Amino acid sequence: MKFVVQKEVLIKSLKKVYRATSNKIANFSFDKIFLHVQNSFLNLTYLDSEVTIVTKVKLVYSDQDGSIVVSIRKFYEICSNAQNGSEICFVFDEKKLTILYERSKFSILIFRESEFPKLINWTSQVDFRISQIELRKLILSTKVSIGSHDTRYYLNGILLQNNENYIRAVSTDGHRLSVSQTYVKFSNYEKFSIILSKRGVVECLRLLENSDNLLRVSIGKKDFKMNMDDFSFCVKLVNGNFPNYQDIFLKTNKKVVVLDRIQFKNMCQRAMILLNDKNQSACFVFESHLAKITTKNFNHGEYEETIKVQYQDSIIKICLNVKYVLDVLNIIQCERIKIEMIDSISYVRIQGMSNQLSFYVIMPVRI
């Protein structure tokens, strides 16, 4: 079997697969890629215990269909070192794969196809289409609150659920919560609620582009899958029950502060100068038309700043993790934001004034 492919075309697809293996490459059983030539296309398949990625490459030439299994690390390193604009020729016999370009010749050993895990077919329960950029924004807006190695494993991911013609993404680590939603038109509406793992979140962000091209999303009992013309990605879902986050929105009588996002962000960044990893909390005081922040570090000193805001309610004093506040302000792109509070011991809700589809909740710090 012999086939030829353009270097740039191959590397663009191969990178999508190789990046998913970077943290698994130490495990020899996962250092394999399945190459399948069919109808002048090369399919690259990677599979481990959590994810499956398949990409498709248009070939310049192929003399017959066939398939082989090789080391993904060596395959990537050899192909990526070819000069841009060159064509890479692959010749396969029963024992080795020969790779030719320019004046270079490589011969690498192959594995038996039986050593490569078998793809498991599953039936989807929900299918819908969404643009790459909308799904990417949805994940980017909420990934900041994903738990990190939490023993409550269901917090180490993002909850995805639908409500009529909207998909909502929710994440929380117990100290903060992010909620975002986007419009999706369902051809056959069927309610779903799944938890996308942290690994799935990372790989989705690697694969999704800032493009309006539609992709098809399929959801099964245990799997989440994205399909495009040139790639497909599948990841196992987290098996667990996400906390009932909607209970915290039942409280009323909220105090609302409206202020400039950049001005507030700069104030919080200056507050971080005297803080450290062990102490990242600051005291916020909101009173008539003013917002004041104070921080204290016994080793370095104190910081205090006051800015003008739109607020005409009673004085409220609350302590928050400044890093959590900055994380939210870096995600929100609106010029003005609103901060909703109830009292000094209840949650704070932050939202962009021109974006009603996303909001963020931060729990106060008790000092």
Rank of each mutant, 00 (worst) to 15 (best):
M1I: 03
M1L: 13
K2S: 08
V4W: 01
Q6V: 05
K12N: 09
S13C: 09
A20L: 12
S22H: 06
S22M: 10
N23P: 02
F28N: 10
D31R: 11
K32Q: 12
I33G: 10
I53W: 02
K56C: 01
V60C: 01
Y61A: 07
D63Q: 03
D63G: 14
G66F: 05
V70S: 09
I72K: 00
I72N: 01
I72H: 00
R73W: 02
K74H: 05
I78W: 00
I78R: 03
N81T: 13
N81C: 04
G85D: 01
E87P: 04
K96M: 05
Y101V: 12
R103C: 09
K105H: 03
L109W: 02
R112G: 15
E113G: 15
E115Y: 02
F116K: 08
F116P: 09
L119E: 07
W122A: 08
S124G: 11
S124Q: 07
Q125C: 07
Q125A: 05
D127V: 14
D127G: 03
D127R: 12
I130S: 09
S131M: 04
L135Q: 06
R136P: 00
S141R: 09
I146C: 12
G147Y: 02
S148H: 04
H149D: 10
D150L: 06
D150T: 03
T151V: 14
Y153A: 12
L155G: 04
N156M: 08
I158L: 08
L160S: 03
E164K: 15
N165W: 00
Y166I: 05
Y166R: 14
R168E: 11
T172Y: 01
S180G: 07
V184I: 13
K185E: 10
S187A: 08
S187K: 11
S187W: 01
E190I: 14
I195S: 03
S197V: 11
S197R: 08
R199S: 13
C204F: 07
C204I: 04
L205W: 06
R206T: 14
R206A: 09
S211C: 04
D212V: 13
L214H: 10
L215S: 05
K222I: 08
K222A: 10
K222N: 14
F224S: 12
M226V: 12
D230G: 06
F231T: 11
F231A: 06
L237P: 08
V238H: 00
G240K: 03
P243M: 10
D260E: 09
R261Q: 07
F264K: 06
K265T: 06
I273A: 04
N276I: 03
D277W: 03
Q280K: 15
S281M: 02
S281G: 12
C283V: 09
H289E: 11
K296C: 04
K296E: 08
H300I: 15
G301E: 02
E302G: 00
Y303N: 11
T306R: 09
V309G: 01
Q312C: 05
K317Y: 00
I318G: 00
Y324I: 02
Y324N: 13
L329I: 07
I331V: 11
I332V: 15
C334G: 15
E340M: 14
I345T: 10
V348N: 01
Q351G: 08
N355R: 07
S358V: 05
V361K: 06
V361H: 07
V361P: 02
I362N: 06
V365W: 00
